[in-house]
Write a protein that binds this DNA or RNA. Structure first.
Length: 132
RNA sequence: AGAGGGGUUCGGGCCGACGCGGCGCCCACCCGAUGGCCGUGGUGCGGCGUCGAGGAAAGUCCGGGCUCCACAGGGCAGGGUGGUGGGUAACGCCCACCGGGAGCGAUCCCAGGGAAAGUGCCACAGAAAUCAUACCGCCGAUGGCCCUGCUGCAAGGGCACAGGCAAGGGUGAAAUGGUGCGGGGCGCGAGCCCUUAAUGUAAGAGCGCACCGCAGCGCUGGUGACAGCGCUGGCAAAGGCAAACCCCACCCGGAGAAAGGCCAAAUAGGGGAGGAGCGUUCCGGAGCGUUCCGGGGCGCGCGAGGCGGCCCGUCUCGCCGACUCCCGGGUAGGCCGUUGGAGGCGUCCGGCAACGGGCGUCCCAGAUGGAUGUCGGCCCAGGUCGGCGCCGCCACGGCGUCGACCGGACAGGACCCGGCUUACAGAACCCGCUCUCGUC
RNA sequence: UGGUGGAUCGUCUAACGGCAGGACAACGGACUCUGGAUCCGUGAAUCUAGGUUCGAAUCCUAGUCCACCAG
């Protein structure tokens, strides 16, 4: 039996400061269903965390809530497949609510991996410049 | 049977797997430096149980509760409300009634005070838009002028000067209230007679009468808005607009839960308080020595601290030291406010009703980057298409049945409550509500 | 969350309650070998729904959308 898939408070972004750090330091990635900002946590061994930023452009309150809940569910189920040590802020588009369920899970997984790769490249470049 | 009217309630249901938030119980760990008992708090990618959005949670349009600030009293300014009487904590809400309007009707709609306090506006058209009645018009008996007439008078004709009249004036949303009647007979005529409330002139009428309307006064009924009745009135006194300014009556202090209150790490800084040493021994110095000065070790004692309380024990630090403690401000952060309330349900009583009162019973979301989601199965409103059967002359429609597909509207709490407004697939029920048609 | 203001041709803007005007843009024509400039002309709008009024872009009510302010 695989590990139980939980979504505890420890893997959620809960502070304005945390969001501000992600927006300040993170890289931005997107596909046709979703935008995402990815930043590295201080300790890369800690589990990745999720935050959401749902604009009023997405729709009225019911649509915004449904979109956020689907995103959280996708994050919960995809957590074993995600790289650790990341803070993710998902920014839904108006189309996100209509995205098929499997496509949404795939977007979360791929965007997180893409963001992690770009972060690694940026860190390597920074080390090279400071070293030379 | 069809077409309507009013009102009430609901707004998908059941099951499984995983997940989320609150609360309760259990477990583990922590709350620094040992243990015990009690207590309290925290953490958990531990477990179990239980509860977990709406009728509009929405818009934020009114009214209150609550909190802080301001405040002698009164007025001005500003804003709001606007038939009357009640209900209510209060309201711009609700109920009943009054008045007006729509409808055959059940019923529905109305910001519904004041236009005889003032100001303003009423385009175009029209004589004229509130102001005298001017203009066009009609008459011109009476007076004036001119002509006819030999002259004057009388008489006749003309002018429209004075003067009189107020019917009519295409318009316009709106024009100073509307409608009806003012008779009959004889006579060429003045006139007379009859009947009548019924004339009069040069022309006419606003003249006369009746009814409706309007206004004033009085009486009666009603708490009142108002209604009914009667009398009076040369209706030339009073056109419309106040969601135009305004007047009148009544109401309103401001800000809002990110209100407001409490606890408070680290760092820096502010204010204040506290103290007790003794014995022994070693080293160095002064010194003949008792002794004195400085430093160290050990023991005892004292003080402080080791999350809350107590106990046993222990550790660290200090004993004239930038040591310890206390106080206040205050940041990060946390807690309270924060859900039990003008509460729901049932029942009895009062009231036409809104609603009020008594009794019983129930506890029903409390998040704080913000909890209801994902996946699957079944059922039920309902819709579309197709097949079959029955009714039916057919188009088509109705009923029954089978299959396939689609398949739930508007919409998410953020301090709470009473309303209003707006959005909404549908469903069920009630009416001693109405109209039309048919049958008995 | 609380509060304030606004919406008029495609764009920017006017309009005491009385025919919605102007500029730029667009289109057509003239001028030119062609284009530009210039001249003449044309079409095009009161956010939506009710109400007050004889009459509403204007006044009132409700809704939709946008902008701004405080934190």
């Amino acid at each position: 039996m695989a590990q139980r898939l939980r979504y505890p408070a420890a893997v959620r972004l809960r502070r304005k400061r945390e969001y501000e750090r992600v927006f300040r330091e993170g890289v931005r990635v997107r596909d046709r269903w979703l935008k995402m900002v990815v930043a590295a946590r201080e300790d890369p061994t800690l589990p990745s965390r999720l935050g959401t930023a749902v604009s009023r452009k997405v729709g009225h309150a019911v649509r915004r809530n449904r979109t956020r809940r689907r995103l959280r569910e996708a994050f919960r189920l995809e957590r074993p497949a995600l790289p650790p040590g990341l803070d993710l802020v998902c920014i839904p588009l108006p189309e996100t609510e209509r995205a098929p369920w499997e496509a949404l899970r795939e977007s979360v997984r791929n965007l997180a991996r893409l963001g992690a790769a770009r972060l690694a490249r940026r860190a390597a470049r920074a080390r090279a410049e400071s070293g030379s």
